[in-house]
Design a binder for these strands. Structure first.
Lengths: 340, 340
DNA sequence: CTGAAAGCGCTAACAA
DNA sequence: TTGTTAGCGCTTTCAG
């Protein structure tokens, strides 16, 4: 299990040449006489020589990986995003390390510190709520692209969805169907995106001249079970909502389950974020589609540009903010009219 | 963006001590006079010094990451598995790099080669179908734990679900409800697990003395849309199945959708692998629960043991095979009796 | 308790 | 065309 892996030296000794020659052969570069190259290649294969990227990187002063720091890879949204990061990075020969924060600021920080130690070339980060001044320490060493969450801190490339605008539109969609009592479920202080979506919700209500009822936007139910309970509570009252806006796909699962249990097919629903079977349910669930894959791909492209992988574009320049559009997919649940 | 990161030398120079002293302080080790340590620590903070893991690893001859190679992180099964690997690895201070194969043997190989170059300490691999002799090259360098897919090649630690047995039980569950024409959907030659599940299906039918009808187990529909079409085809015939076994959760989504479109609530369904909303559907979907999180955790624990992180247990020994149990969760769809 | 020197595996000058 | 030498940043003898 622990035979020392062969090094350039071993190969050189075995082949009776200098290590530099082996290096040249391994890197496919330069002029090496064909017969020598063949011979060396042979020894390389026979010894199962594998170049040591660590040493290479140490020499080069920079690694060959990029880091992805997210809430948790178990979240389908981030899984899709990370998948896109990987495939985009791979095209440029970069590996991907990831670390999850579990929504804990300290863990975010330690993950990033860890990656800095690993000499990552760059970082894609979905920041947890909290102070991010500490990032300044790292930005001198490698570019950082923020994803999904918009941030007060300026100076970072950012790729986000227009949470506020998309939510405003979604609520408008419900208002157009006559709904006046629209609940906002899935609110969670840990997620800045939720606040933005809540803002969009307020925007739409204000624009329509509808007073905000705080009871319709309770707190702390970003997760499936909590959202489920919230819906039970909301619909258990006399003047419950006629429509529900669910602020994230996990919450939506709970909302859907609750509506189903209560047999309330009369309540309209729009989900921020698509989820499996949304089209299958009865009624099919109208969603705001976030396209995590696109967010990841765009973010990585931007990172690669900052790293100089994009020949065509300049690697420096002011921080950019890309807003990935989110489309409303009308499937039925969001088109339920208000009962008269 | 590219100020050279400070090194031990820089800190040493600034603090007016030798690099070794800085090294000692950074590693919190040994005896350094308290005042000196304080002073050095101060300079470290001021310069934003971050140790270079690459150099450390080069010196140590081994890295601080473990690799995970899977089909794609976008698959919820592997996302959950990878998430478990990460949290388990993190407890031992190891980072996680991942690479996806996209079901392509060559990509699997190149990903592993890449990780070998990166000096991963160990590997968790969900092997793609194909020849894996090449793995022998690497096993001398680092331990490899195979997950999810059982393998003919001996000598590797393996963590799998008892696909065959669990499927046999699931089919038995349907047979007990009187079903005799049970379809097998989601079959795909790319996945060895599918073959094992198909074997289990055959086992159960044979045990019940029911002849196998190849038309009930068509090929090539592991994905949602293909599975959906397959169900339409199967139920479009005169002697269609009265029950469906779906061999993976992605396929199940398609099956559910098709059943819903066809309004066939009379057809029984058991899904191999749980999925969101399975409990919400009408009828709720009976599933064989694979517990990917557990598979990942067990695999990583085994890997850590091979790496000597588990003080209590020996790091060497013959390859072990852990079979993680898969429980049948009866929710309704699998308990539909055959129509008389 | 602290420092000097060697070397991990590799590449990039610079020679030969 | 090929080899020698000097580090990359760090840890580890072995001295002071």
């Amino acid at each position: 299990m622990n035979d020392r892996r062969p090094t350039l030296h071993d190969v050189a000794a075995e082949a009776g040449v200098s290590i530099k020659t082996v290096s040249r052969v391994v890197n496919g570069s330069e002029q090496v006489s064909p017969d020598l190259r063949l011979h060396v290649q042979d020894v390389v294969d026979r010894l199962n020589y594998v170049p040591n990227t660590l040493a290479r990187s140490l020499k080069a002063g920079t690694g060959d990986t990029i880091g992805v720091v997210i809430d948790t890879i178990a979240d389908p949204f981030f899984a899709a995003l990370t998948s896109a990061v990987e495939s985009t990075a791979l095209e440029s020969g970069l590996n991907v390390v990831f670390g999850s924060t579990g929504y804990v600021p300290e863990r975010e920080r330690s993950q990033i510190e860890r990656m800095a130690m690993q000499q990552v070339r760059g970082l894609v980060l979905a920041p947890v709520l909290g102070n991010h001044e500490y990032l300044a320490r790292f930005r001198g060493s490698f570019p950082i692209v923020l994803v999904d969450r918009s941030f007060e801190i300026d100076g970072y490339d950012t790729v986000v969805v227009d949470d506020r605008g998309a939510t405003r539109d979604a609520i408008g969609h419900l208002l157009a169907r006559g709904h006046r009592r629209i609940a906002f479920v899935g609110r969670d202080e840990r997620f800045p995106t939720t606040s933005d979506r809540l803002d969009g919700y307020h925007d739409a209500l204000h624009a329509a001249g509808i007073p905000v009822d705080p009871l319709l936007a309770p707190r702390g139910q970003a997760e499936e079970d909590a959202a489920e309970r919230a819906v039970h509570d909301l619909l258990g009252t006399d003047d419950g909502p006629t429509a529900i806006f669910s602020a994230n796909p996990r919450a939506s699962l709970g909302v859907v389950h609750a509506l189903h249990e209560l047999r309330r097919t009369d309540v309209a629903l729009v989900s921020f974020g698509d989820f499996p079977l949304a089209r299958t349910l009865e009624p099919a669930v109208t969603c705001v589609d976030q396209d995590p894959h696109r967010i990841g791909a765009v973010a990585t492209t931007q990172l690669l540009r900052r790293l100089g992988f994009d020949e065509g574009r300049d690697r420096i320049g002011p921080a950019e903010r890309v807003v990935v559009p989110a489309a409303l997919i009308a499937r039925g649940s969001g088109e339920i009219e208000v009962p008269r």
